[in-house]
Nucleic acid binder design. Structure first.
Lengths: 345, 345
DNA sequence: ATCGATTATGAAAACGTTTTCAAGCAGACT
DNA sequence: AGTCTGCTTGAAAACGTTTTCATAATCGAT
């Protein structure tokens, strides 16, 4: 903070010009062994580290990328961020982190800030990938970016995701195979998550295919990352038309739904089956374990960052959505549907 | 990436000097309404955003802070990061994020990188706050930092934590009150977490006080954030001397321990009580709910960032460790100790 | 010995800002 | 009319780098 050691001091101590110091440090040109040694001595004696700021200004490269996600506390995002960061570091890039807290309207402002910081590219998860002023801004600025968890319709955008529709279909297919006919979709934030909508769509398709009516939908409010109060949620659950299975748009929500069900005396999976989406690791440790669609979250982060890295150095990359493999994760939270009481409630 | 619009272009379009543009943008001096209007027109027409790089170079302020934590995927760190980021944004600072992945030896290199990026300060959780070359480096560079979750002995360092010893004592006290006499401490990473060690110490003190022998210790290996394979863990648990309660050094570990116990037919809490430390929110949603010591993780993040912000602008702040209030969170995972079979195994 | 070719080095420009300094200019006062 | 004050503006320096260009020095070859 108070003793900034610049290249000039190193040059002074080594008795040469700053140009030579720069050459020694970056190995960008031949230098005599003698002067090289003096420079190296000075560098370590002064604990000199070239300022990335000065360097960036000249080279117009910051080696910094930005991340924009709805939240850190959702394990899905946390672990993909970890993946991004790992790859970023491997390519000696650093990561500027921001969260929208699920406020889609903040996206644009956040992107603006990141742009001012001269990030070379971004990895982001937006509310609606096909209608985002933030993305338009990035396109205009010609700053490369890779979407994560979004599945944009536009083919010119880069994205890494799983096939949300197929995943949801698969999961709901399992429920149907277990004999469930009245399946409700418990939706987190339809409005701020196109993923949620796609999963709903997959659910509808699976039920359609099986000749079942559209699922009932229960929309849940959130406070930050946590679903609303357990008793409010419980009340809402009670208001449903006696579904035998609940498909929740994500695992965190499923956990809350299980807890709420329990609180109103509904046994899981005895009275009602509950499934989620994401495959967070905690789901396997609880009892009953949570049936879900597992996404390779960390790998999605690393993949996104690899693409972004390529883009940053203007390497040719095929645009479009990379769909990584999802996997049905069975769990004790779902079971065969209870036998239907004839014409009952 | 390819059309960088600089202050010069704005000046050219507005027909004035770059100095005037700067003044209009920052409002740092009076300008005539006429020229101000022209500048504003140019700014919005060109979608100009001052480069933070250029600005930082001149002002020697980057308005960027660094975060160093062991991992993002541990909810404890994730939520305090969220707190840090929130406050940082409120003070219009951005956050550079890095994880050590629990490799203490990486800390120094990471700090070095962050320093080169000219961060104005750091929030970090280190392996051992009293013996850290990374912190020494920061002291030498006179860059302010605030520790999070660490409780350094040195009184000149800033830190935000809970009282780990007191928390552990309190929790173990509860176990003892429930009649437990053989309590084992399940330790995650003694070597890379001084928190773990403090919690152990608290456990020992509580047992000492009650005239009980030192707790048996089970040390667990990790792969990244997840404890070792469930069956390995289960085997290790079986090797213990029939404790009636397991105090785990953190909640994630406790969850794994519960799952492992279940896998070898030990009922929780019927056969063995299990408690954790941290109070992660998922702990309240599972069955049985997890008894733990809740830390105000997000508040710890905001507090740390507030202190750092003050430090960054050279405001006087009392050094030392801020201990935030922890709270015993009761849970169904602990229950009265089974009655002791006379002189049994 | 002289010449061209090669190598090591330094001076200076450039990157995009902020800020100091001086100057221009209007109006107000003597 | 002349001076002073106050307000607005521009030129230029500075921040810490990298890089271009030129120069000095070394060397082998004629």
């Amino acid at each position: 903070m108070s003793e900034p050691v610049s290249i000039h001091m190193v040059a002074a101590r080594a008795g040469c010009s700053i140009a030579t110091v720069s050459r020694v440090i970056n190995g960008t040109a031949q230098t005599s062994a003698e002067v090289r040694e003096r420079v190296e001595e000075a560098v370590s004696a002064l604990a000199y580290r070239p300022s990335e700021i000065g360097r960036s200004l000249k080279t117009r490269k910051t080696r910094t990328i930005g991340i924009v996600v709805p939240s850190f506390t959702n394990p899905v995002f946390a672990s993909s961020i970890a993946g991004v960061e790992e790859v970023a570091r491997a390519h000696s890039r650093t990561v500027l982190l921001t969260a929208t807290e699920y406020h889609g309207e903040r996206e644009e402002e956040i992107v603006e800030t990141l742009l001012a910081k001269q990030v070379e590219g971004l990895v982001l998860t937006v509310a609606d990938a096909d209608n985002s002023r933030a993305l338009d801004r990035l396109d205009a600025a010609k700053v490369p970016y890779v979407l994560l968890y979004n599945q944009p319709a536009r083919a010119d955008r880069y994205a890494v995701s799983v096939d949300n529709i197929a995943g949801a279909r698969e999961l709901v297919g399992q429920l149907i195979a277990l004999g469930h006919k009245r399946i409700a979709f418990v939706a987190g934030r339809f409005r701020t998550s196109d993923r949620s909508l796609l999963r709903y769509q997959g659910c509808v398709e699976a039920m359609d295919e099986a000749g079942l009516p559209k699922p009932e939908v229960l929309e849940v409010d959130y406070a930050g990352d946590q679903p609303e109060e357990p008793d409010v949620l419980a009340t809402k659950l009670r208001g449903l038309n006696a579904p035998t299975a609940l498909f929740c748009s994500n695992d965190l929500l499923a956990l809350a739904v299980i807890a709420a069900s329990r609180s109103i005396g509904m046994k899981v999976p005895g009275d009602v089956s509950v499934a989620g989406f994401d495959g967070i690791s905690i789901g396997t440790m609880i009892e009953p374990s949570l049936a879900s669609i597992a996404q390779p979250t960390r790998a999605m982060g690393t993949e996104a960052m690899e693409i972004l890295h390529a883009l940053c150095q203007a390497a040719p990359v095929e645009p479009g959505v990379r769909l990584l493999q999802h996997q049905f994760r069975p769990g004790g939270s779902i079971a065969a549907a209870p036998v239907e009481s004839k014409g009952g409630t």
